[in-house]
Simulated scan of single mutants.
Amino acid sequence: MNINGIMKPLKTHFVERMSVHVYDDRGQMGAAAAVAVGARLRQLLQDSERQVRIVFAAAPSQNELYEGLVREQGIDWSRVCAFHMDEYIGLADTAPQRFGRYLTERLFSRVQPGRVELLDGLHDVDQECRRYGDMLRAAPIDIVCLGIGENGHIAFNDPPVADFEDLLDVKAVKLDEACRRQQVNDGCFSRLDDVPASALTLTVPTLMAGRELFVIVPGASKRSALTAALHDPISTACPATILRTHPGITMFTDREAYGL
């Protein structure tokens, strides 16, 4: 263990600009990621009197990160403005699969950020994209916590709709079937027909505009996508390949996802 009581990674190396840390299991991975995000958040809060702005992903792959963040001490969450990166279109307010609900239950209700801004997939789509984009552009995004989908997506930027030069901040997209199947594989929906066909998502440039990115990718189901993200040519065939170009990015993964 290191001085924070977190197990040392099995492997640490750089892939282009990305620092990659591989842990034995997803519990160790999530704990280490939470320590890193918590330390950065405390430093940002110490260095400035303004709110710190963070975008959070909503997915089972982030469970261990959020459990760890809840336990992190010395964070003045009242000075944090929290956003999330995607939401289904048309899914009822009461649906347990809504990403805003996931983040509220897993994180926001437990740490009480000073400001929480949720995407609403029940509003007029164009108006909601403009509203949320305006808020995101109002000040820099300090931290983005994200994962990688089984088809290589980041947020809901699936290969058919990902655009590295997107002029929009937030947009509506049709979800790739592989992306929708992942929601069933993750246990979020019981059948493919139950998964909404469209969603709102932050675009690739919006995510990449974050000053510091923390990428959390556990599990054997992500191995193919992770291998592509780390080693394939940078292209929208695997949208996550673009992450390798970010100047302030750290990846946390586990043995199963990495293939160690």
Results as ranks from 00 to 15, higher is better:
S221D: 14
G152I: 15
L69W: 08
R131L: 05
F56G: 00
E165I: 06
A31Y: 02
R130L: 10
K8I: 01
A257D: 14
L175P: 06
N185R: 15
T245E: 14
D76F: 10
G68S: 11
D120I: 03
R79H: 04
A39M: 04
V116D: 00
T245I: 07
T206C: 09
R50K: 13
L200M: 11
L69M: 09
A33F: 02
E67T: 08
R131S: 06
E165K: 06
K171G: 07
D25M: 09
K11A: 04
V111P: 02
L213Y: 01
V161H: 12
Y88K: 02
P233A: 13
A139V: 01
L91P: 06
I3P: 02
D126F: 08
N4C: 09
D193E: 15
S224I: 14
A57F: 01
V55D: 04
F108E: 08
D163G: 00
A228E: 15
R255W: 12
A36C: 12
L175E: 09
Y66I: 01
G152T: 12
K174P: 01
A95N: 15
K11E: 09
G30W: 07
Q183K: 14
R17P: 03
Q43L: 13
N63S: 12
S198Q: 11
G121Y: 08
I216R: 03
G147P: 13
T201N: 10
F83M: 07
G219N: 14
T12Y: 01
Q183C: 11
S48R: 14
D186T: 03
V144Y: 11
Q43T: 07
I89S: 00
A32E: 07
R110G: 05
A237P: 00
L10V: 07
K222R: 15
Y102W: 13
G114M: 13
I141P: 07
H84P: 04
H13V: 00
A237Y: 06
I249D: 05
R17Y: 10
T203Q: 09
G38P: 01
R79F: 11
D126S: 15
M29A: 01
T250Q: 11
S198C: 09
G38C: 07
A57H: 03
I249M: 09
I143G: 08
L230I: 07
V217F: 02
F252M: 04
H123S: 13
E64A: 03
E67G: 05
F164W: 06
I75Q: 03
Y88E: 10
V215S: 09
G133R: 08
C81K: 08
I216C: 13
